[in-house]
Design a protein around this nucleic acid. Structure first.
Lengths: 139, 139
DNA sequence: GTTTGTGCAAATATTTTGCACTTGA
DNA sequence: TCAAGTGCAAAATATTTGCACAAAC
């Protein structure tokens, strides 16, 4: 019965580095990719630590996490205190736009109740090819 | 430059068993779960074969595949020749309903073009707790 | 000083692949 | 016949965990 009111997170050098990396980009990247980037930037942080940090941040809502079709989990920093929102992500370069869809939220709730479902959650991911990537003829 | 016009699939005992299992349920299950069920039902089919079969079926559009938050891929039979559709899935028992959302498709395309994205694809997964599970007070 | 975080390596979990053998069309 | 399918075991990929040590508060 330990109360643990709000699991305090200590600000370590490693965690700061992860946050800094997240701040420096708006792209969704896998834990491994963030780790690579950190190592390239001179950090000696361990892979497991990056996983643990991203996990903690995702749990506290400070980063967005999405799962790709291949089962990889991608992370991206989340605008502070932002409302629940969705993403339009370029599947080639990882760039992502935030999009709002208030109509959808209402619609989802309605459909769910019609089918007798409660405690609804939803995942919406739009992926495509952004203008820059399309211009380069990639893909 | 082999033409390979339409990759013919042979109907083997194993593949038939997989299809039969899929037909007997409307729930989303992981490849491993389908394999377990097949073994329980007396089949001696191998795990790799189940993976290969589900993969082939998903590719040909005969089964629906979704990826969970934890990265597992779930499969379910797909109504023959059905249009693109989405699911409302119970995260406790795996039951799922098919839902239609023509408005959403149009809306997604519009949003995407507004941001300059092309070749749009989307993932929409609604999850919740179905009436039966809620009644049992699970979760 | 005690609790939380870290690095490493080993463990897990899921899915894929190489290969010799079998089988459906 | 013979290309496609299968089983097994090993590989690949992605992530988690145990543990001794270090650092934060």
């Amino acid at each position: 019965m330990t109360p643990s009111p709000a699991p305090q997170q200590r600000m370590t050098k490693q965690r700061a580095a992860v946050l800094e990396a997240l701040e420096a980009s708006t792209e969704f990247r896998s834990a491994q990719a963030w780790h690579d980037r950190l190592r390239h930037d001179g950090s000696t942080v361990g892979l497991a630590t990056v996983y643990r940090a991203l996990q903690a941040l995702a749990e506290s809502g400070d980063v967005d996490a999405v799962v790709t079709d291949s089962g990889e989990t991608l992370y991206r920093r989340c605008e502070a205190g932002e409302e629940h929102h969705h993403h339009l992500r370029c599947r080639l370069c990882g760039r992502a736009e935030d999009i709002d869809m208030p109509e959808f939220e209402r619609w989802a709730d309605r459909i769910a109740s019609q089918h007798g479902y409660s405690r609804i959650d939803h995942t919406v991911e739009l992926t495509g090819v952004c203008e820059a990537c399309a211009a380069e003829g990639r893909g």
